[in-house]
Design a protein around this nucleic acid. Structure first.
Length: 665
DNA sequence: CAGTGAGCGAGCTTCCGCTTGACTT
């Protein structure tokens, strides 16, 4: 009897179908040892010796695994083939006290892949394990050394880290670009044209003037010139353009697409994907690889040829970007020939699961299809000294668009000949303004993080949650990210005093070092040393140099409603707020006006209603005199009162206006 | 349905990455 240990129980279940009775399969549920939570756990004076502990959750797993190892004559570690997977194998070996564990890896879950892997076991690669330890320890040092600095200099409970602090920085920088942005006026002129002989054909088309126009008077002058001009076709260029399908989904692209199409937050997408994975509908959903198993490709080919015809089928192989760790396949349907409709009918799937499966299936099938083909025409029209351009695009062959529909505009142009003279129908000038850059959505933030190799498939969604829970950023009404006051304060401190850590290149540089460790060219303790010494020296200096952030205390001429002393504005963990200058004798606090809704509190008559958030970040509306007055509502008050009972009218989430008094009808 | 600040100096906050399941909207 042999014991095989994998990371995911679902993966275990799947491979058990391919292995005989001689194999017992258990899973580790991810990492089973880690640095302790309450201390640094790294002996920086002693070669960075880490202290590993088994978290409470993993204790049960370890107990079961240990019991199982005693009943078998061989233990096979089949964790993922990447840095973290190698480290898990090593931690398992250490925690279970294994003598000669066999280490195997496979990238796809098929019978041949697994039996090949079993025939070629190796030993644990300590260099790769060391690269993981270096990564882990660096992250621990950055997070657990800078966060306490922020507690001392700003406010308790704050945090900093290699990944989260860069994410916040990107959002703050974007906000500053927007603040700095000044819209500039510009004008465009479009000509609506048609052929001269148009007995049966009244078709018009538009052409755009190729000219930069800043001001209205310039536009008017050009229009005056153009009114008298002849419109002559000077150039006709016809060509075929092609559009290739997209590669199959990785975690990051799935999250982005689910956001674009369904407005699913990354976290939600992952939960639905997990359900699909557990039901056996899709391959593993945390991956950065676009690899596809040979079997899936041949099923796709057959399916496409029999459903749409041979001319739609095209074998395509995709290459993952440089840093991908390739432990898994791309995210694809487990059974490519199971169409979304048949699957949703045969199994219990809710709407969200159906929607997500649908795009995964379409994306995968489309990635093995031919390109879409367009007839494009570009024409140039001369009018006096000016040039207009018009573009036509007509879909000639849909190719992959048959299963992966996308928006594109079809423009039809009439048949034209060189030197043909056209009739002008009208000239349309329009005023425009340059647009500020747009704030990040979950999708665009994940995209830029991935492009810079910051974060991993398993962490994109948690990172987005963390920086919101810390109150560094929040979603506005368009569901785009804006930094909070405290987010800006913390970011500016990090950028000023720890510029290297929040540099977008920091992770890339770290990865280079980790690669050297994994290749055996560099010792991990040396890399840690090289990072830590200057880091710590700088940190100690900053403890002395940086003053506590209290410059933000502003006096006001407002009176404290409790004791009559004046109020001050202070900076707390949740941003600015009013506090009594008589603190600590008087502990009165209240919200700033800009958060107030300008509606009197119906209960205490003193306070105003203000937007607040629960611990779970849910928005509600409460009295700004809290805790003296505990009036609160879930729905937004409109400011008007009910005619029947004089209670406040509220607007529900469904935009209905109701009375806040539940007894009032 | 809910916080923030100072200092006394108790005990606490915090990272990233791998998993799933316990909750809730």
């Amino acid at each position: 009897m042999k014991l095989v240990i994998v990371e995911s129980p679902t993966k275990g279940k799947t491979i058990s179908k391919f292995l005989g009775k001689d194999y017992k399969i258990l899973s580790s549920f991810g990492h089973i040892r880690d640095l302790p939570i309450s201390t640094l756990g790294v002996d920086v004076e002693n070669n960075f010796k880490p202290k590993y502990v088994i978290p409470a959750k993993a204790r049960k797993v370890i107990k079961e695994l240990k019991a199982a190892t005693k009943k078998v004559d061989e233990v096979i570690l089949a964790t993922d083939e990447d840095r973290e997977g190698e480290a898990i194998a090593w931690h398992l070996s250490e925690a279970l006290g294994l003598k000669n564990p066999k280490r195997i890896v496979f990238h796809e879950i098929t019978k041949t892949a697994i039996s090949e892997a079993l025939k070629n076991p190796r030993i644990i690669n300590q260099d790769v394990v060391d690269a993981q330890q270096a990564r882990r320890i660096l992250d621990r040092i950055v997070g657990y050394k800078i966060s306490p600095f922020l507690w001392k200099k700003v406010a308790r409970g704050l945090s900093a880290g290699r990944v989260q602090s860069v994410a916040v920085k990107l959002i703050v920088e974007k906000e500053r670009e927007i603040e700095k942005f000044k819209p500039e006026e510009y004008w465009t002129i479009e000509a609506e044209l048609k052929k001269q002989e148009t007995r049966n054909n009244n078709q018009t088309f538009t052409a755009l003037l190729k000219e930069e126009i800043k001001l209205e008077k310039d536009a008017n002058k050009i229009i005056k010139d153009l009114d008298k001009a002849d419109y002559i076709v000077k150039k006709i260029e016809k060509k075929e353009t092609r559009r290739n399908p997209f590669p199959p989904f990785t975690t990051s692209t799935l999250q982005q697409e689910a956001w674009k199409r369904f407005k699913f937050p990354a976290r939600f997408t992952m939960r639905i994907a997990q359900q699909l994975y557990e039901k056996g509908n899709i391959t593993y959903h945390r991956t950065d690889s676009v690899n596809l198993s040979g079997m899936s490709l041949s099923i796709a080919k057959k399916f496409i040829e029999s459903s749409y015809g041979q001319k739609y089928s095209k074998l395509r192989k995709y290459k993952s970007k440089g840093k991908a760790q390739e432990a898994h396949e791309a995210i694809r349907p487990t059974f490519p020939d199971k169409e979304p409709a048949s699957l949703s009918a045969s199994r219990r799937m809710d709407k969200n699961q159906q929607a997500l499966y649908d795009i995964i299936w379409r994306r995968f099938i489309a990635c093995q299809m031919t390109e879409a083909c367009f007839d494009s025409t570009a024409i140039e029209i001369r009018a006096g000294e000016y040039i207009f351009k018009a573009n036509g695009q007509i879909l000639k062959f849909d190719g992959f668009l048959k299963v992966y529909p996308m928006k594109f505009k079809e423009e039809e142009l009439p048949d034209l000949e060189k030197n043909e003279i056209l009739n002008l129908v009208k000239l349309v000038p329009s005023q425009h303004f340059t647009q500020p850059p747009s704030r990040y959505t979950e999708a665009s933030l994940i995209k830029i993080l991935e492009e810079n190799d910051i974060g991993r498939p398993s962490t994109y969604a948690p990172i987005i949650s963390t920086i919101q829970v810390r109150n560094y950023i929040e979603k506005n009404e368009q569901k785009r990210f804006q930094p909070t006051e405290i987010g800006i304060v913390v970011n500016d401190i990090l950028v000023e005093h720890f510029p290297k850590i929040v540099d977008i290149e920091f992770t890339a540089n770290m990865e280079e070092d980790l690669d050297k460790i994994a290749e055996g060219k560099q010792k991990w303790t040396k890399v840690s040393e090289a990072f830590y010494r200057p880091f710590n020296e700088n940190l100690q200096e900053k403890y002395k140099e940086v003053k506590k952030k209290e410059a933000s205390i502003e006096k006001t001429d407002k009176e404290c409603p409790k004791c009559g002393k004046f109020l001050v504005i202070r900076m707390g963990r949740f941003g600015k707020f009013y506090a009594c200058s008589g603190f600590p004798e008087c502990k009165h606090t209240q919200a700033l006006e800009k958060k107030n809704l300008g509606i009197k509190c119906p209960k205490c008559e003193n306070g105003e209603l203000t937007e607040k958030r629960t611990k779970r970040k849910k928005i509600f509306y409460g009295c700004n005199q809290f805790p003296d007055c505990d009036f609160a509502l879930w729905d937004k008050p409109t400011g008007k009162k009910c005619e029947k009972c004089d209670s406040l009218l509220i607007e529900t989430k469904k935009k209905q206006i109701k009375c806040s008094n539940k007894d009032c009808t």
